[in-house]
């Protein structure tokens, strides 16, 4: 198991969009801690420290709040859409002997056999939900796709997870499939458009028209 990073947290008295924005301007990230049937606490942590911990793919952290250390799981992160850092974080209080339910990313390895026959490997599921002890959370679940031919698929039930980890997502869900590329479809799309279709106008939903006619009649 990796070393657990300790972040120094400060209590946050103000909540809401504007207050959170002001917190971010100071280089800190607004966060929330919840779980273990205790009241949720609004806190802030240093943006750089949190970013560094996330880059190391740390799922467990120690939060030092008012001199008291809490072991937490990073339950959710909100990122800025222009990659300007983390906007908000959710921390879930955990005990090391308590089973937790988390999402683990699925990583594809290899090149599918079906790609040589004009197929394309599609990963339909980015994350699988698992149940395990906090210390056993895998960094990712690897799926080897090298043996997949055209039309073959890997389902959640086929995933190989380490001992002590139980998959919670339904076993019938598709994870990876090798589908035929849409050659036939694009050929029909790129064909010359018929004149009628090119000048076609969308159908106006009749409700408005009918009402107008009724109004005219009443006048």
């Amino acid at each position: 198991m990796k070393d657990i990073v300790t972040l120094v947290a400060e209590r946050r008295e103000t909540i809401g969009t504007r207050a959170a924005r002001r917190v971010r301007d100071t280089g800190r990230v607004p966060c929330i801690v919840y779980g273990h049937k205790q009241d949720p606490v609004a806190i802030t942590v240093d943006g750089r420290e949190l970013d560094a911990a996330v880059r190391q793919r740390a799922r467990m952290l120690d939060l030092d709040l008012d001199g008291k250390k809490d072991r937490v799981l990073v339950a959710d992160l909100q990122h800025d859409m222009f990659n300007r850092g983390i906007v908000h974080a959710d921390f879930l209080r955990v005990a090391m002997d308590e089973v937790v339910r988390v999402g683990v990313p699925i990583v594809m390895r290899g090149k599918a056999k079906g790609e040589q026959h004009g197929g394309v490997t599609e990963q339909l599921m980015a994350e699988v939900e698992v149940e395990c002890l906090p210390g056993d959370i895998p960094e990712s679940v690897t799926v080897v796709v090298a043996d997949l031919d055209l039309g073959d698929a890997i389902h959640v039930s086929d995933l190989q997870v380490p001992a002590g980890v139980k998959v919670v997502s339904p076993g019938t869900q598709l994870v990876v499939t090798v589908a035929m590329t849409r050659i036939a479809a694009t050929e029909t799309e790129t064909a010359a458009p018929d004149a009628e279709a090119a000048t076609a106008e969308p159908e106006v939903i009749a409700r408005g028209k009918a009402e107008e006619e009724e109004e005219e009649e009443t006048k």
Binding site: M81, A197, E203, V204, I205, R207
Partner: peptide, 28 residues
Amino acid sequence: MAMMPKRIKFRKSQRGRIRGNATRGNFV
């Protein structure tokens, strides 16, 4: 052929303003 709606409620629309950032459809 260029895309266009199949059915619309009103044939013409006002120009409008584009304000703020996308809050949906903003990640891969």
